[in-house]
Design a protein around this nucleic acid. Structure first.
Lengths: 196, 196
DNA sequence: AGCAACTAGACGACTGGTCTAATAAAGGAT
DNA sequence: ATCCTTTATTAGACCAGTCGTCTAGTTGCT
């Protein structure tokens, strides 16, 4: 039936996410995922054309959830844009600094590994990060409009600056296993946004 | 003999680097590396205790080369610190934006994949990035001293800001396959260093 | 000659992704 | 209610590939 179809498929994706967040893409076998999801190995190719297509779906699912949450945060109009912006980076800091799998960033985990491996997955990453950047830039513009943030010469450029900063900080956090890199990024962010 | 010892070992490392830069750590088998290096499989475990120890050696070798080049760049005293700093980021931009394997950044390629996989490799990454950051911070201080850069409240914090920015930009470059992210990082860098 | 350093590559035990053939379920028609 | 067709789902074979081990052999230095 069609609803089971989607349920099982989604169940595989949900089960796989924390596993892949831990071990990466290549190092994880279908076996491990499917055993964990309690889905027989033979079924996998009914729901996904290949491991690569599955990885693509995983990323698509991730970005669509992520953008959804971002939209609901950024669309609350009873706060200033500066507050929304800070809430966003704060939650980034919290989710990426704790050990809790599942909340962690698939972009940081997979980008380097997967971009040279699969054109399809790379394309999904391009689209996803682009959507993210557009939302950040929009929030910056709203901040300039409502006066809670300084007027930026180029909101896109500032958004990119911030996003690169936090990507790098998250990468360093994976290396360091402590909050220092992300806390430094937060300080830099407040400087960039001219918030004290 | 002892010099052959080192030659073969180093030859394996040199051959492996571009391969791993392309496919990552887990996705590459010893076979592929050893065939490329024309070293029989049996010999591998004479030079390295395990694949993990080999990965550790690869990273150590990378950082020691990298820091060597950095030291010789940063120790040229006939230039201002600001010039040395800009030369460094410019060469980062050039090496990371072109497709040329071998020049690319092992930290960005492996950090996310390997940090959760091997404690030994993670430790090597911590040490390597720390050495790098120290050198950048030192150059910033020299810039404040010779007047070519503004006096920073905290050189370490600024160095970290820059390094995070460029790590993130390089990650985005792997996704995008173009220079845009790195060029944006260069603009941001000039802003941070107050250079126009 | 003796002893260490090094090489050769078969081997084991296992995992990888993929595919085909068999089964189960669903829907229609009589 | 029974049969037939069609689609959804699964079991497990398949083989190429994995890391790491092991023994036998070669090399070269003292």
């Amino acid at each position: 039936m069609n609803s089971d179809h989607i349920d099982v498929r989604q169940h595989i994706l949900d089960t796989a996410k924390p596993i892949i967040l831990g071990k990466g893409f290549s190092a994880v076998g279908l076996n491990e995922i499917l055993t964990a999801a309690d889905v027989p190995k033979g079924s996998f190719y009914h729901y996904f054309k290949s491991k690569e297509a599955f990885g693509e779906a995983l990323l698509e699912n991730y970005f669509s959830n992520y953008c959804g949450r971002l939209d609901s945060l950024f669309s609350t109009q009873d706060t200033t844009a500066a507050e929304r912006m800070l809430t966003y980076w704060s939650s980034w800091l919290e989710t990426q600094s704790c050990d809790d799998r599942d909340g962690q960033c698939l972009t940081v985990k997979l980008a380097a590994e997967v971009s040279d491996l699969s054109e399809a997955m790379r394309a999904t990453l391009v689209r996803g990060t682009q959507q993210l950047l557009a939302r950040i830039a929009l929030c910056l513009s709203e901040g300039a409009a409502d006066g809670s943030l300084p007027p930026f010469a180029n909101a896109e450029q500032t958004a990119l600056h911030l996003y690169e900063l936090w990507l790098g900080a998250t990468l360093l956090t994976k290396i360091r296993r402590d909050r220092s890199a992300l806390e430094s990024a937060m300080q830099s962010t407040q400087l960039i946004l001219k918030i004290n």
